[in-house]
Design a protein around this nucleic acid. Sequence first.
DNA 1: AGTTATTTGTTCGTATGTATG
DNA 2: CCATACATACGAACAAATAAC
Lengths: 261, 261
Amino acid sequence: MSNADRALKLSGPVPVRVSSGQRVRVPKTAELVADALRRAIIQGELSPGDALPPESAMMEQFGVSRPTLREAIRVLESESLIVVRRGVHGGARVNAPDPKTAARYLGLILEYRNTNLSEMFDLVSSLEPPCARLLAERQSESDVERLREALAAEREAGTDPVAAAEAHAAFHATLVELTGNRAVITVSETVQCIFAEVGTQHAAGGDGPDFQKDHEAHLKVVRLIAAGKGAEAERHWQRHTALMARTSAASDGDSPLELLA
Amino acid sequence: MSNADRALKLSGPVPVRVSSGQRVRVPKTAELVADALRRAIIQGELSPGDALPPESAMMEQFGVSRPTLREAIRVLESESLIVVRRGVHGGARVNAPDPKTAARYLGLILEYRNTNLSEMFDLVSSLEPPCARLLAERQSESDVERLREALAAEREAGTDPVAAAEAHAAFHATLVELTGNRAVITVSETVQCIFAEVGTQHAAGGDGPDFQKDHEAHLKVVRLIAAGKGAEAERHWQRHTALMARTSAASDGDSPLELLA
DNA sequence: AGTTATTTGTTCGTATGTATG
DNA sequence: CCATACATACGAACAAATAAC
């Protein structure tokens, strides 16, 4: 059976070589299989938790050999779209795509480009202030309620370094999530994943004696949002996040990311 | 040869199963090989264009069989870290990690979450205004010169739709690049890659009769940057990008991304 | 608690296609 | 046009892990 025959079974149009001498990227069989499975997962035909057919069934379905199928399986596994377990009721199960995967690849490029922590904080300082403004302009009561809950969680965390850092990060995440903008939310989550990778000590930005000061800044932004003062909320949050960036730069913000170490 | 023995050859610490009943994710051999090669590429030991050893050599080097090695190769190829060619002087060659790869995975999640174009434009509207402010505060002569070159390119593109759209996008890219913040630059490039995927007709945002208006907005931001008026430059650029977002929403900004179609 | 059946993990051998020289 | 070197793909086999019985 030729490669072209197999491609027909997988994605319809056969990758034909053009007669002119032009270079043609011939899709490998395993890639076609991986693409077909990935598409089924992303478009919701397969839901998280669903089991893929056993290897033998997929071999027949796609008309490929086991090594070829396994190459495709390994690709999807590297993308965290599936997890594979051995044993009797094992096999491949679908995973929901989550920002941690995107973070891995974005982090790869950032590390390759010698990006440092300060630049990452500046990125946060770009993303979050417009969120504060949007919430203030919308002036929704339920938004304010959610933010006040996050504030309460901060107070409850008290001075325990790790709990306070978590609550601090959760407040920032809430501020972004409430906007409902899935693009901004996803990028923000991705960035936070990278922070989590590089070490929790920087994730909160204020791993010092200024938890109290941070909490006051959070209180203030909620006050401004509740009052509908968009421009002021944005400006205030811009200053707050910029301060976090400077604080990090003072410690070791100039050292490049090392995610693969 | 056991899996643990092979792991030793690859990454040192052996993935030992803990005695307690806890679930342990046992790394597969192909993953370990892929990790080792990926690390060598990202950390610069292998430069773009370099050829990896032939399969037979790598099989011996890592102590794995051909199918296992090929699983690893396929993973790296799916990440665009290498390209594999057949034939006499074929083999795997190293590719520089570029934002297009991150865009694929970020786009996957965005599509899964039913993100639409409007939300993407709002993201741009978060990222770029702080760049304008930073450039104005820095007030560098060479920055202004580069921006004026981008403006000249826009004038040169004239009214040709595709050339004008390209020049328009290039101006935005220049504005971001000049800041020198690698994190913001990389995320911005990633977002632009997604726009390019979804279709060039939206990439510029102004695929209508308002190229002239856009150009005037670009002129103004350069004027404000040259004058060192940071706050005004940021506000102006915020309005400009927000206008692009609204223009897109008016056409088909509400339709979710379809990157795998 | 041990056995067993099922499923994946890994390997070997072999045949084919492709591009270079 | 042929020969060579390399990746591509297949099939069969054994090993290891896991859950059910």
